[in-house]
């Protein structure tokens, strides 16, 4: 795994710091003695411990929502919301999501700015098996918040399916911006792009591993200012879906999806608050 270049102009230092934990290689599990001491699910994951960097996280003011039981582990709805004023001096700057039972624990890392207006994000994820999903939020004041959720994954007999995304590369980006957003009321934005999100762990019909090919970054800017960014890992479902918010002000929203091949697709939309 390689480090991606930080794109946020505002807060590069903290991005690198938190990014190091998420993107660093490192073993998945702690050594046995540490495991015995681990009281909380997040203490069992190296990547989460590094992200917390010794600080004791709060478990209030953060909500991680997934279904208790999922009948299709290839696409599980996930949303995280964090209580925050999202003001210039107190906002949620990152939300990291991990799946402790996946081959790679990282699922996604979201970076927010006060321009998002609301710290609520949602996507669809792959869960390899029943497991604990963990969300870690970091505020601009350095506070850490953690939420966990146990999800049971089953494949229902009547649901067994054969067929996945037929998309080859970045295809058919879709964006939904509310037609008449109210100024002062964060607008909910939906995006979707057709892409296989090949994990690199799957065999093709010839028995050979299909090479990894994922959308690794999604960025949103409003008139050139960063609003929202997502780093995606293999555990984000095929056809990445993202839901987040933007504080409405007149301007041009630019959305871009970047593949690990370097290829990028952009879409622009005009934001025109009432």
């Amino acid at each position: 795994m390689r480090l991606t270049k930080p794109v946020f102009r505002g807060d590069r230092r903290s991005f690198l710091r938190s990014g190091a934990g998420v993107l660093g290689v490192g073993g998945l599990l702690l050594s046995a003695p540490s495991l015995l001491l681990a009281r909380q699910p997040w203490e069992r994951l190296d990547v989460v411990r590094e992200l917390l960097d010794g600080s004791e996280p709060s478990t209030t003011g953060i909500d991680l929502d997934l279904p208790l039981v999922s009948e299709d582990g290839s696409s599980v709805s996930l949303s995280v919301s964090v209580d925050s004023p999202m003001s210039d001096d107190d906002y949620v700057e990152s939300i990291h999501v991990f799946g402790a039972g996946n081959p790679n624990p990282e699922i996604a890392a979201f970076r927010l700015t006060p321009a998002a207006g609301k710290a609520v994000v949602a996507t669809r994820v792959r869960l390899n098996e029943s497991q604990t999903v963990i969300a870690v939020a970091r505020t601009s004041r350095g506070e850490m918040k953690v939420a966990t959720r146990d999800v049971r994954v089953t494949v229902s007999g009547c649901l067994s399916r054969n067929g996945d995304s037929s998309a080859m590369g970045l295809d058919n980006p879709r964006v939904r911006v509310p037609p008449n957003p109210q100024a002062g009321n964060p607008a909910e934005i939906l995006t979707l792009i057709n892409h296989p999100m090949e994990t690199g762990l799957r065999e093709g019909e010839d028995g050979e591993l299909i090479p990894k090919r994922i959308v690794e970054r999604f960025q949103v800017e409003l008139d050139g200012d960063p609003v929202f960014e997502a780093e995606l890992y293999q555990a984000v479902s095929a056809n990445p879906y993202l839901r987040f918010h933007v504080k409405p002000r007149a301007g041009e929203l630019r959305f871009s999806w970047t593949e690990d091949t370097g290829e990028t697709v952009e879409v622009t939309e005009t934001l025109d608050p009432a």
């Binding site: 696409s75 009547c158 067929g163 058919n172 095929a238």
Partner: peptide, 29 residues
């Protein structure tokens, strides 16, 4: 949803019996 029960069998059958009469639009479309 992006997939459903007996999807391949249904889609084979639809094409065979009904041609292009049935169009399925998935969640991701």
């Amino acid at each position: 949803k992006d997939g459903f029960s007996k999807q391949g069998l249904f889609m084979d059958g639809w094409a065979e019996v009904y041609g292009d009469m049935i169009e399925w639009v998935s969640l991701s479309d």
